[in-house]
């Protein structure tokens, strides 16, 4: 194979990365800008970081975002894991039908999903606010959990579960002691995916939340019309660095696990 790296391909990669990272760099750099302008540099300052923590709208939005993400992914994990179990053991026809329904929110445009849920909440007379927001997030999170857990169930050896039952375990004991440890990586992946999707969502939240409850995305969107305050740059810089640190920690740890497993195999 040709291992030589062509200078053109290096140049090309640099250009693509420049394109992808330019707006992010701009955002981070201008979060340290002394002035309010988003085009002119007026000197280094931590002013916007300080104002961020004093900004109750943004802080409330951050709390709502985290609360909705945590609760909705936890509920989605419970319903989704149970659903994956049930689907795994049900007849093929029922499974295919339900899987098709499950994939609908993933295929459909977010705007259509958001509007359909808005219509539902209006139809049943649920006031738009935290509860409707939460229900909407649970709805689009469950499919990610199901799709993460299902493959783990297919890999599972069915005999171990039956062996546990034969040895006198109750079905619940057998589930928690035998099955759950095996499928837990899928559940964790599902939870992380759901959490990420929930934090990242704008469109569905935009249609299903009320006037007094804001997620960060919704708060940012309403700000874009009046001009974004630099505090939000500070906040997203902090979030970006948090996520980056978390990802690096997770990657390093899982890399170490892989190495350990390989050593044990030898």
């Amino acid at each position: 194979m040709n291992k030589r790296r062509h200078p053109l391909s290096v140049l090309y990669s640099v250009c693509i990365f420049l394109f992808l990272y330019a707006p992010i760099v701009v955002l981070i750099v201008f979060s340290f800008n002394e002035s309010k302008s988003r085009g002119r540099w007026a000197g280094f300052s931590l002013r916007w970081y300080q104002e961020l923590f004093e900004n109750s709208t943004l802080m409330d939005a951050l709390k709502t975002t985290l609360a909705v993400a945590l609760i909705s992914s936890a509920v989605a994990v419970i319903i989704g894991t149970a659903a994956a179990l049930g689907l795994h053991y049900s007849k093929k026809r029922i499974r295919n039908l339900l899987m098709n329904i499950t994939s609908l929110p993933m295929i459909n445009a977010d705007i259509v999903t958001g509007i359909s849920l808005l219509l539902l909440f209006t139809f049943i007379g649920l006031k738009l606010g935290f509860v409707s927001l939460l229900l909407a997030h649970i709805t689009f999170n469950i499919p990610y959990v199901i799709l993460s857990v299902m493959p783990k169930l297919t890999q599972l050896d069915n005999n171990t579960f039956e062996a546990a039952l034969d040895l006198g375990a109750t079905p619940l004991q057998a589930f928690f002691k035998v099955m759950l440890p095996e499928i837990s990586p899928g559940i964790v992946t599902g939870f992380i995916l759901a959490f990420t999707m929930s934090i990242d969502d704008f469109v569905i939240s935009f249609f299903t939340t009320g006037a007094d409850v804001n997620t960060l995305s919704v708060a940012i969107y309403s700000m874009t019309r009046r001009g974004i305050k630099p505090e939000i740059n500070a906040l997203s810089t902090l979030m970006f660095i948090t996520v980056l640190t978390l990802l690096i920690v997770v990657n390093v740890r899982s890399g170490r696990d892989v190495q350990k497993r390989e050593k044990e195999r030898r």
Binding site: L27, D200, I220, I228, N233, L247
Partner: peptide, 13 residues
Amino acid sequence: LPMWMNFLLRTYS
């Protein structure tokens, strides 16, 4: 990685 920053903000940027 860039997708971990809110897409409204990246677009606004």
